[in-house]
Design a protein around this nucleic acid. Sequence first.
DNA 1: CAGCAAAAAAATGAATGCAACTTTAGAATC
DNA 2: GATTCTAAAGTTGCATTCATTTTTTTGCTG
Lengths: 242, 242
Amino acid sequence: MSQRPDSNGPATSLHAELLEQLREYIAEGNLADGMRIPERILCEKFQISRTPLREALKVLAAEGLIELLPNRGARVRRLSERELRELFDLMGGLEALAGRIACERISEEEIQRIEKIHQEMYFFYLRKDLHEYFRRNREIHEAIVRAAGNQSLSDMYTAVYSRVRRSRYTANTVKETDRWSAAMREHELILDALRRRAGAELSEILFMHLRNKFIASTGQMPDIEDVSETNSSKAELRLIGD
Amino acid sequence: MSQRPDSNGPATSLHAELLEQLREYIAEGNLADGMRIPERILCEKFQISRTPLREALKVLAAEGLIELLPNRGARVRRLSERELRELFDLMGGLEALAGRIACERISEEEIQRIEKIHQEMYFFYLRKDLHEYFRRNREIHEAIVRAAGNQSLSDMYTAVYSRVRRSRYTANTVKETDRWSAAMREHELILDALRRRAGAELSEILFMHLRNKFIASTGQMPDIEDVSETNSSKAELRLIGD
DNA sequence: CAGCAAAAAAATGAATGCAACTTTAGAATC
DNA sequence: GATTCTAAAGTTGCATTCATTTTTTTGCTG
């Protein structure tokens, strides 16, 4: 097969396109967790030979989306509770970083654009339109990450998010709604800190925002071991989330 | 070729070993920046056919260590000033995250172990033994990341560090020494915050610590655009670094 | 001799082939 | 009937081969 002489858009390589397709295919949950994925099936599905497929699988394995057992093929990596918590914290850390840098670099116009999305979000919050609310919610978080103007950070954030996306815990439904008003309040704080360009503060809020979402989603506490109560972070954890 | 029936250590796959070797080979700087790397040469060097090599290259490209130009092969990715800054910020963000989580989870024993390394580091600082000083310095940062007990975070940190490692700016030499005393003071603050388990504070210090190192190493400011001076982060930037 | 064109050489991208390993199916044993 | 051993079928890992693309070399023209 040549380089897709027909029907192709940009002149990107076949391998890159395949990778993109596969990533999407897996992230969307078309393959059951932990299920074995025979190369043959994917080859037929994407009309491609084993060589480029195997290259793509190696990359996806490095990204953590699938796992490759020697001589036993690929399977979709199933996230343990532990890994999910790890990835949530990681995402929180990356957003915190993005928020901090964004405060240094973001333009007034971009702040206004985020404010606009925020107001839309508030509107859908009042309307109790969960779907549209979450879309705006996601847009705000993405905008903050983008506003940091750090491509490496954005890439890493996307990679982490794509791993977490599959998880049923992130489905933004029932349990999350209990926390809806709290989340909305946190978003007010986020925007306020951003307006004031208070980097450290925004950083703090964003991290806790993600933590609270994790706690609400899973019921799990992010593993705080027996640590003396002089510990300030425990207090902070409650400070925002209501 | 079979699965190396002779002379092998752990029963890991050939591909995984190759990846490890290549990563090390590149990170050590055996390949000149931006130089073209013909597959043929690497095949001969590692006594392997093109298929597994190409798989490994795809992974390294995804990690950002090399770049793959379509039909024009692999070359060692040369870090622009911009990317270096991005990666430094990213590393700072990951360390900041690690510090915060470490405050929640670290054991008293581990704190004491870090304190010990810190004291050794101070000793070598007084002796002006740059090499031994930096070894301890690195050990402390690694210990904090490890103390977060988040494998995904550790992996990502390692990946970022391996990309930055090659850079001549991170060579820990001349320019850095101008900042030696300031860095030492920052480390006192780090340990102090860790002892008090002041997560947010430690997070802040660690990020700034990395920023200051970057500024000292490159002379470059981390791109703070024309932002009104009500901005607090600019002040913070100076707060610690002397 | 510089500059360009064409052809040869080399490198890359992908497909196919082969050996080794896993898994599955089936037969023999208890 | 359950269990263990054996053989067949299916998969994977890697090597080799083929087709394109890029690069270099060679030869021609001005």
